Simulated assay, not measured.
Amino acid sequence: MERIIFTALFSCCLSGLMSGWVTFINLGITDTFFSDWSIAFIKAYPMAFVAAYGLAKPIKLLTQKIIGSNS
Rank of each mutant, 00 (worst) to 15 (best):
M1R: 07
M1I: 08
E2N: 15
E2H: 11
R3N: 14
R3K: 14
R3C: 07
I4P: 01
I4F: 01
I5V: 14
F6Q: 10
T7W: 04
A8I: 01
L9C: 10
L9T: 07
S11C: 00
C12I: 11
C12T: 15
C13D: 05
L14V: 14
L14G: 11
S15N: 01
S15E: 01
G16W: 05
L17D: 09
L17Q: 09
L17M: 14
M18S: 09
M18R: 07
M18Y: 07
S19G: 06
G20R: 04
G20H: 03
G20N: 01
W21M: 10
W21G: 10
W21S: 12
V22Y: 12
V22I: 12
V22C: 08
V22Q: 11
F24D: 00
F24V: 07
F24C: 02
I25Y: 06
L27N: 15
G28H: 00
G28S: 03
G28T: 01
G28R: 02
I29D: 08
T30Q: 11
T30G: 07
T32N: 10
F33D: 00
F34N: 04
S35G: 13
S35M: 11
S35R: 12
D36H: 13
D36A: 15
W37S: 05
W37I: 05
S38W: 12
S38F: 15
S38V: 11
A40S: 11
A40E: 08
F41W: 08
I42H: 11
K43H: 10
K43Q: 15
K43I: 15
A44N: 08
A44F: 07
Y45H: 05
Y45F: 09
Y45C: 03
M47S: 15
F49A: 01
V50Y: 04
V50D: 02
V50T: 05
A51I: 14
A51P: 04
A51C: 13
A52P: 04
A52L: 05
Y53F: 12
Y53R: 04
G54A: 08
G54V: 05
L55S: 12
L55C: 14
A56I: 07
P58S: 00
I59R: 06
I59E: 01
K60P: 10
K60N: 13
K60D: 14
K60Q: 14
K60T: 15
L62F: 03
L62W: 01
T63E: 08
T63L: 13
T63Q: 14
Q64E: 12
Q64F: 08
I66Y: 02
I67H: 03
I67D: 06
I67V: 10
G68I: 04
G68W: 03
G68Q: 01
S69R: 11
N70M: 11
S71T: 14
